[in-house]
Design a binder for these strands. Structure first.
Lengths: 112, 112
DNA sequence: GTTCATATGTAGTGATCCTACTTATTGGGT
DNA sequence: ACCCAATAAGTAGGATCACTACATATGAAC
C-alpha cells in the first residue's frame, strides 16, 4: 500500500473508524490495521496530526481522560463529522467508479 | 473530483490512456476527459509534467512530429510501461478493495 | 485581425502523508 | 533491580504530487 495512494482518502477512513463509537488515536490506528488486514498500518506521525486536523475542522470532538495511568484523548464524531463521512463515502464511490472505469474499461458493479 | 484524491493514481490513468495506442499529450488529456464523462479533466500543468515523469522513468517513449503545422510529442507505452500498467491496475484493485472494505464494512464485489 | 481551439511547456504553491524523534506510563522477562 | 516491549500522545522536517498561473506558438473561424 503506497503512501501517495492514500492521500485524500485518509480522513474518510478515520471518520469511518470513529463511526462505530468513540475511540482514542491509538485505538483508531489499531482498528484500521485490523479492519484492513494490516494493509493500512499508519504511523503515529500520520494519525495524530490527521486527528488534529479533523478536530480543528469540527468533524470530531476530543476529550482527555486517564485510563490505567495513561492519558488518552478520546474522539467522537460530531454531527458535522457524520455528515462529512457520508459525503466522503459518496466521494469515494464516485472516485472509485471513475478510476475503475478508466482503468478497466468496464463499468462499476451497480450498488444501487 | 478533488485534487488530492487523484494523487498516486494519475500515472495509472495516463498509462491506461496510452494502452490503446500512441497519443500525444493533448490527446491523452481529451481521451481521459471523455472516458470519464468529464470527471477527470486535467489541466496542462498536470498532464505534461506527468508525461515527462513517465518518460524519464522509461514507462513511455516520446517522439516529436509535426501535424498541421503544430508540433506534437507522441508517446507510446514501452515494454516496462506495459508491465507497470498491469502492476498499477493490480495496485488499484487492492487499494480500492481495502478502502471500500474499511469504508463500507462490506467486501468488494468479486471480480474473479 | 482578433479570438478560439490546438499544442506544449515551466515556476511556484499548497496539501498531504511519512520518517525520525521525543515524552511518559505500565507490565513482563530475566 | 533492570531492561524492553506495548501503550499513548505528540512535533519537526522532508518528500511527493497535482494544481494555479503564466508563457509560447500555430491554424481556423468570424
Amino acid at each position: 500500500m503506497k503512501a501517495e495512494q492514500l492521500k485524500g482518502h485518509l480522513d474518510a477512513l478515520l471518520l469511518a473508524a470513529l463511526e462505530t463509537g468513540p475511540r482514542h488515536g491509538y485505538a483508531v490506528m489499531e482498528a484500521l490495521r485490523e479492519s484492513t488486514g494490516g494493509q493500512v498500518d499508519l504511523p503515529t506521525g500520520t494519525i495524530y496530526p490527521a486527528l488534529h486536523r479533523l478536530e480543528a475542522a469540527g468533524l470530531i470532538a476530543g476529550s482527555w481522560s486517564v485510563v490505567g495511568g495513561r492519558r488518552r484523548r478520546c474522539y467522537v464524531l460530531t454531527e458535522a463529522g457524520t455528515k462529512a463521512l457520508s459525503g466522503r463515502r459518496a466521494d469515494w464511490r464516485d472516485f472509485a467508479a471513475v478510476i475503475t472505469a478508466a482503468l478497466e474499461g468496464t463499468p462499476w458493479p451497480s450498488t444501487a
